[in-house]
Amino acid sequence: MNEFWSRYARNRSAVMGLGILVLVIFMAAIASLIFPDDPFRLAGIPLSVPGANGFFLGSDTLGRDVASGIAHGAKTSLLIGLVATFAAVFIGIIFGAFSGYYGGLVDDILMRITEIFQTIPSFVFAILLVAIMKPSIESIVIAITVVSWPGVARLVRGEFLSLKNREFVQACHTIGMSDMRIIVREILPNCLSPIIVVGSLMVATAILIESGLAFLGLGDPNIMSWGFQIGAGRTMLRSAWWVCTFPGIAILVTVLAINLVGEGLNDALNPRLREGN
């Protein structure tokens, strides 16, 4: 563990990314303490500039507090990002593991299914799914999961293809081990590193998709999110810049931080780079 950390810490920007990410998580965790009121509440004079009328980051057209929205929105973004990523990684591992391990007809069928999902532009597909299912936090998570798992499936399939012919797997066959056990206990642990890296980057993509959906008015109407804030303020962009800008910066910083962490994990977990230095 210490060794892992020292390798991770060699990448300075990854450490910075981790710092920012911890800060965002902290903000989401204490949102209800600093802003105990509902972020949708009309808290005061509409369109107050930042700093005026007790609004640290200003207020929007209906007098909602932008700072409160960002704090509460962090919860939504992180929650959706994490849940959707876990679900996508789970499905992707199942598809990738079976198609890579068994090959042949199983591989053909599973990969053709995967390709159907890959051929549809992911954001359009996500809009379509949310529109069909009615906007709610569940439907957004489902939509993001559905558009993100094929990448994981492809990755896991590739890893399984290369690992299944290794001699240690053949040794398991010679002692009569069952396929399920070989897949779960022998091969899967050996492809965790790339899965973790891709997963960490997927969290960032999920946050972006969620913001995009909310911006288009397809977010859950009862839950505050960064995309919703930007969407609500876009008509006032020239007269009240702060309504869109601060949630935008929040998205930018968070996604950047997660990307940096993913990159750092990649460097730390990639055995080739490890040898190089």
Partner: peptide, 23 residues
């Protein structure tokens, strides 16, 4: 085949690929 597996076993060529690094 499973019970017959105990009768016949194999030693592999590459000592680096034949052991699972995670076990």
């Amino acid at each position: 085949m499973r019970p017959w597996r105990t009768k016949i076993q194999m030693v592999f060529q590459d000592p680096f690929a034949s052991l699972n690094p995670r076990i």
